[in-house]
């Protein structure tokens, strides 16, 4: 006996907000992601190197932002039910030390496919007033 965790397709409406979360990135968050992912590019922990390559300082891994945004969708969609997810990285997210960067994620239904019973979820991901991801779209398999 298995319990499906995928959302019910019936009743979904384009424009509906299905998930929202504020993410807080600190240097600790970046180090944790570096270890978990194996991405040890020093621009994500070393201010001197980050500034040498023209950045304002240490920035978050784009894939940390993408992965955390996926978690917001997944909390609604259920684990394993996001079959496609794409983003463009449009702006870096500087992470100060000490301090934190707060990133807001809003996930709305962008389109519904009746034949496949999938929902396209469009994400708005902002750091302050700046959009940090472009064309951020997930496909969720529904019931």
């Amino acid at each position: 006996m298995t319990e499906s965790t995928s959302p019910a397709f019936e009743g979904l409406e384009v424009g509906q907000t299905v998930a929202e979360r504020a993410l807080t990135f600190t240097r600790d968050t970046l180090v944790r992601y570096a270890g978990a992912s194996g991405d040890f590019n020093p621009i994500h922990y070393n201010d001197v190197i980050a500034e040498e390559v023209g950045l304002p300082g240490v920035i978050a891994h784009g894939m940390l932002t993408m992965g955390s945004a996926a978690s917001v969708v997944e909390e609604w969609a259920g684990a394993g039910n996001v079959s496609d997810f794409q983003v463009r990285f449009t702006r870096p997210i500087p992470v100060p030390n000490p301090g934190e960067a707060v990133v807001t994620v809003t996930a709305r239904i962008g389109a519904l496919d009746d034949d496949r019973r999938t929902a396209r979820v469009d994400l708005t991901v902002q750091h302050g007033d700046t959009k940090v991801l472009g064309r951020a779209q997930a496909i969720v398999d529904c019931d």
């Binding site: 298995t2 319990e3 499906s4 965790t5 968050t29 978990a36 993408m66 955390s68 909390e75 684990a79």
Partner: peptide
């Protein structure tokens, strides 16, 4: 590391109850 809260990433019994053979990896 990516704040994925589902029990299916952590607890084998939860993952199996959802129909998977073992722990499910997060989307990315």
């Amino acid at each position: 590391a990516v704040d994925a809260y589902s029990g299916a990433h952590r607890d084998v019994a939860v993952a199996q109850a959802e129909g998977y053979d073992d722990l499910v990896a997060p989307t990315t």
